[in-house]
C-alpha cells in the first residue's frame, strides 16, 4: 500500500511517498509502516531529491493503525508500534525537509507521522488527535515529537484528552503550519511548499535541518524508543483487549444499522 511518486518535469527535486489504501482511510499495519520507512529512507538518500511530500490517497491522510488486524492477532499491535517508532525516527533523520499533506484525518499513528514532519498542511475541517486511550492504548510513542512540535503543555493536552481537534485548531497550536479551506487543496499546497524547499540551496537546508535536530537533543532516538516502550507496555493487557473489542464491536454494529 506504499508507493512513491516523482514530479521531475513540473517540480524538479520533489518526490512523494504515498499511503495508498483509501478504502481503509490508509490505515497502517506493521508491513506498510516498514515499507514507508524504507521508501522514505531510500528517497532521502537519493541525491536528486531535495524535498519529500508525505501524503495519503483519498479523502483522509491516515486513520492510524489497522485495528481489526490487531483484534484478530493481538501481537501485531506491538509490531505496529515498533514500526511506527522507527518510521518517525526515519523522518527526523532525513537530510531533506518532509512536508505532510494531512487532509481529512490524521489520527493516532497518522497524527504521530504528521507531527514528525518538518511542515504539516491540513484543511480546516480535518480531524487530528490521539483517541487511542479509548482503546486502552497509550499514545506515549508520539510524545517526544509532539512536545517538540507544539510545546510540552499543548502536547499533554492532546495526548491525554482523546478528543479530536480540527485543522483550524491544529494551526492555532502550530501543529500544522498552514490550514487551507478545502481538503482537495491540501496536497497541491504541500507540493508547492516542497517545491519551494527544493528550490533552496540544498547544502544550507541539510545543515540547518541537521543543526536543528542537534539542538533539540541528540538523544531524540533514545527518547522515541523509551516512548515506544511506554506504549508497548500496555499492549495485550485485559483492559486494552476489552476496550479494543468493544470499540470495534460498536463500530461494526453502527455499520450494520
Amino acid at each position: 500500500m506504499i508507493r512513491t511518486e516523482r514530479y521531475d518535469s513540473q517540480m524538479p527535486g520533489v518526490g512523494a511517498v504515498v499511503l495508498d489504501r483509501p478504502e481503509r482511510r490508509n490505515a497502517l499495519d506493521e508491513f506498510a509502516l516498514r515499507d514507508l520507512s524504507l521508501e522514505l529512507g531510500a528517497m532521502g538518500a537519493d541525491d536528486s531529491i531535495r524535498a519529500i511530500v508525505l501524503r495519503g490517497e483519498g479523502y483522509a491522510f491516515c486513520a492510524g493503525f489497522d485495528l481489526p488486524a490487531c483484534l484478530e492477532e493481538p501481537a501485531r499491535l506491538g509490531k505496529m508500534l515498533e514500526a511506527l517508532a522507527e518510521t518517525c525516527a526515519t523522518i527526523r533523520r532525513l537530510r531533506v525537509p518532509v512536508v505532510c499533506a494531512a487532509q481529512g484525518a490524521a489520527i493516532a499513528g497518522g497524527c504521530a507521522l504528521a507531527a514528525s514532519c518538518d511542515l504539516v498542511i491540513t484543511d480546516r475541517a480535518a480531524k487530528l488527535g490521539y483517541p487511542v486511550v479509548t482503546i486502552g492504548v497509550s499514545p506515549a510513542i508520539s510524545a517526544p515529537m509532539l512536545s517538540l512540535a507544539i510545546g510540552d503543555g499543548r502536547a499533554r493536552e492532546r495526548l491525554l484528552d482523546p478528543a479530536l481537534i480540527t485543522g483550524g485548531r491544529a494551526q492555532e497550536i502550530h501543529l500544522s503550519a498552514l490550514c487551507v479551506d478545502l481538503p482537495e487543496d491540501v496536497t497541491p499546497r504541500a507540493q508547492l511548499e516542497a517545491k519551494r524547499f527544493a528550490s533552496k540551496p540544498p547544502h544550507a537546508i541539510a545543515r540547518t535541518k541537521a543543526w536543528l535536530n542537534e539542538i533539540e537533543g541528540t538523544d531524540l532516538d533514545d527518547e522515541i524508543i523509551k516512548a515506544r516502550d511506554a506504549s508497548l507496555a500496555l499492549v495485550g493487557n485485559e483492559e486494552q483487549r476489552q476496550l479494543l473489542a468493544s470499540v470495534l464491536g460498536n463500530r461494526s454494529k453502527k455499520r450494520q444499522r
Binding site: P97, D118, L119, L148, A149, I150, G151, H174, L175, A177, E193, R196, F197, I205, T208, K209, L212, I215, E216
Partner: peptide, 11 residues
C-alpha cells in the same frame, strides 16, 4: 519552540 523554529528557519 522547536516546531515553529524549524519551520521559520527551513522556509
Amino acid at each position: 519552540g522547536a516546531g515553529v523554529a524549524r519551520r521559520i528557519l527551513l522556509q
